[in-house]
Design a protein around this nucleic acid. Structure first.
Length: 641
DNA sequence: GGTGACCGGGG
DNA sequence: GTGTACGGTCACC
């Protein structure tokens, strides 16, 4: 087993980071380099923006190459003078620190960045593609590391800042390649740009680094390691090791022997189609609650530290949750409490996964993990059984939660009362909670559904409705049609379908409405070499258009009448292939409505036949739902198929 | 057509 | 269900 020196020191001295410290009590310094190239071999630094949370905000500049060394020295002196505890930037590990140290080495400048010794930063190979940088006495935090764990479309600073509403109205946006020229023509723009970068990093850090800052109070690891640490191996296991160290006992060896694949949660579709008066209920923190209620832990854990950690954190978390909700407390205190309860949640949720993990988890125990999931399946059956006995129609149950329809409108208080009544039948320490409601639900497949909320908004979930195909005309159709279906309005579905088909036929849409955007993965020159051997549809389109494309370029493509896939030169044009897009509307979008209608009705509406002798009047059609035959399976079993 | 590697991010 | 991610793209067979 390998534990870093800092981790060993923290355990041996019974310390963790940040005891009694709030996020802005440490001195936090942000710096950002502007360079003439992405590689320190090909370019140099010409500007450094620096700020800290004690009021510093400044720029260092080297207009001529000869001034770069003096600027770097001034920067290092500034860092020593401000004496930060934490140094932050976006991609600091992958860009700013490698670039700065490489330039300093070339210029013969010692990089005194840290507090002790020679202060020179070094890299730690943590197995990832970008090594970590560390320097004595200061924590180096990369907001990119924290952002990468979040489900955001882009992890870039500008995009993430906009996502969180942190970008100022007068934000300067410059393409990387144009920064040098802009600096010559309009240095003020680059100065504003660089200052806004460090300001955004500061604001972003407060949001995305807060979870790691809170975790550092709980586990004996340095703050700077926690943005990359996995919750099980990286956070929970050091706590287990600490428990054994403090008891003066050796840390148990991992379990050997055959490990049967174990069953996961129970998943079942009970009904498909459109149902009204929908309620969602779930078992609160199900797996941690089971671990605590049943006293489950790995059998090699003689000290019972696993169960005690989960139990203690669960108890403490309730207190922090209470504080986070306490309106009498100051805002800052409530935010801290919220961050702490989130950190505790992360650890207790990792506990079950750690049990079921393979040999790398020293206190993993497949048998104990099986106990947890078996109990979870039994609990879910108990919940669905009790709900069914109360007369509701089940729709979908998954691991720890269930959607059901009350059939008749009974109102939210009665819905909550129903859930509370079922909860009262569950064992001590296990509670069923109300988790939302909707006027209607289109149940399409397991984990694929659309909800019409009571405020009229549409929530969709699952790949069927959030597909990466996203032609504007198709997504507009799907949203409108889902709304109609959820309102039980079949004529409305037909109306929007006929409308979109008509708009296509009359070329009322623009090419931009039907086209898609793709990213290019090679240059024109590179494609020229392989084109003879193998054609790639979207590159071929760019080739035919005579474009000088390169990696990362975005291309708008559409199917042009008589030409196939083509680069969109006129987004406002109307020369798209009508037949192609009409077929795509049925194939890619209307099929998502199948479960809402009788098959014959679906065929009549979307089948492409003209009006027929045996057609039903659309006004006689209704949305429908039907129970699904019991074909239950578990997550683990489905994975084996 | 399936599979493995490579990438994001930064100027 | 751990370990840095995780989904998309491309080269190669």
């Amino acid at each position: 087993m390998r534990l870093g020196l800092t981790e060993q020191y923290l355990i041996a001295t019974r310390q963790t980071y940040h005891q009694g410290l709030t996020f802005d009590q440490p001195v936090r310094l942000q710096f950002d380099l502007e360079t003439t190239a992405l590689s320190p071999d090909e370019g140099r630094i010409f500007l450094i923006a620096v700020r800290d949370n004690r009021g510093l905000e400044t720029l260092l500049e080297a207009r001529q190459a000869a001034q770069e060394g003096a600027m770097i020295e001034a920067f290092l002196e500034l860092v020593q003078a401000r004496n930060p505890d934490v140094i932050e930037n976006h991609f600091i590990h992958g860009f700013d620190l490698p670039f700065l140290t490489a330039r300093a080495r070339t210029l013969g400048i010692p990089v005194r960045l840290g507090r002790a010794g020679d202060g020179v930063p070094w890299t730690i190979d943590d197995g990832s593609r970008t090594p970590l940088w560390a320097c004595p006495g200061r924590e180096i935090l990369d907001t990119l590391d924290a952002v990468r764990r979040l489900p955001l479309p882009s992890a870039g600073l500008k995009a993430v800042a906009r996502h969180y509403g942190l970008a100022p109205d007068d934000r300067v946006y410059l393409e990387g390649a144009e920064i040098v020229q802009t600096y010559r023509d309009n240095p003020g723009a680059v100065r504003r740009y660089a200052l806004q970068d460090v300001q955004e990093v500061d604001a972003l850090a407060r949001i995305v680094l807060a979870p790691s800052f809170a975790l550092a109070r709980l586990t004996p690891r340095p703050y700077s390691r926690l943005t990359r640490a996995g919750p099980a191996k990286g956070v929970l296991e050091p706590m287990l090791i600490r428990a054994y160290y403090e008891a003066g006992r050796p840390f148990p060896a991992s379990e050997q022997g055959p490990q049967d694949p174990h069953r996961g949660g129970h998943v079942q579709l009970h009904a498909e189609g459109v149902l009204n008066h929908v309620v969602k209920a779930d078992v609160a923190s199900m797996y941690p609650s089971i671990i605590r209620a049943d006293g489950i832990g790995p059998r090699q854990d003689d000290l019972g530290s696993f169960n005690r950690i989960v139990s203690d954190l669960t108890t403490q978390r309730l207190e922090h949750k209470r504080q986070a909700r306490n309106a009498a407390l100051p805002e800052a205190e409530r935010r801290e409490a919220h961050a702490m309860q989130d950190a505790m949640k992360l650890i207790v949720n990792a506990a079950y996964g750690y049990l079921g993990a393979g040999r790398l988890a020293r206190l993993g125990d497949r048998g104990a993990a099986d106990q947890v999931t078996a109990r979870g399946r039994a609990l879910l059956q108990q919940v669905t059984g009790a709900l069914e006995a109360s007369g509701v129609q089940l729709i979908e149950s998954d691991t720890d939660g269930v959607y059901f329809s009350t059939r008749e409108p009974i109102g939210e208080p009665a819905e909550r009362a129903l859930i509370a009544a079922v909860s009262a039948t569950l064992p001590d320490g296990i509670t069923l909670e109300f988790d939302g409601r909707a006027q209607a639900m289109l149940s399409h497949q397991i984990k694929n559904y659309a909800l019409l909320r009571y405020d009229g908004t549409l929530d969709v979930s699952g790949a069927s409705f959030e597909s990466s195909r996203s032609e504007r005309y198709g997504m507009t159709f799907l949203r409108t049609a889902l709304m109609a279906v959820l309102h039980g309005d079949v004529p409305g579905v037909q109306a929007v379908f006929l409308d979109v088909m008509h708009q296509l036929a009359t070329r009322a849409y623009t090419n931009a409405d039907v086209g898609t955007r793709v990213r290019i993965g090679k240059t024109r020159e590179a494609y020229a070499l392989t084109r003879g051997k193998r054609k790639e549809a979207h590159l071929e389109a760019a080739w035919q258009a005579g474009l000088a494309f390169k990696v990362g370029d975005r291309l708008d493509l559409y199917v042009r009448v008589g030409q196939g896939l083509t680069v969109m030169t006129g987004p406002e044009g109307h020369d798209y292939d009508v037949k192609h897009y009409q077929a795509a509307l049925v194939q890619n979008y209307a099929t998502r409505l199948r479960k809402a209608l009788d098959p014959a009705d679906w065929d009549q509406l979307f089948g492409g036949r003209g009006p027929g002798l045996f057609d039903r009047p659309v006004h006689d059609m209704h949305v429908r739902w039907r129970p699904v035959a019991d074909q239950d399976s578990t997550a683990a079993e489905r994975r084996l198929l």
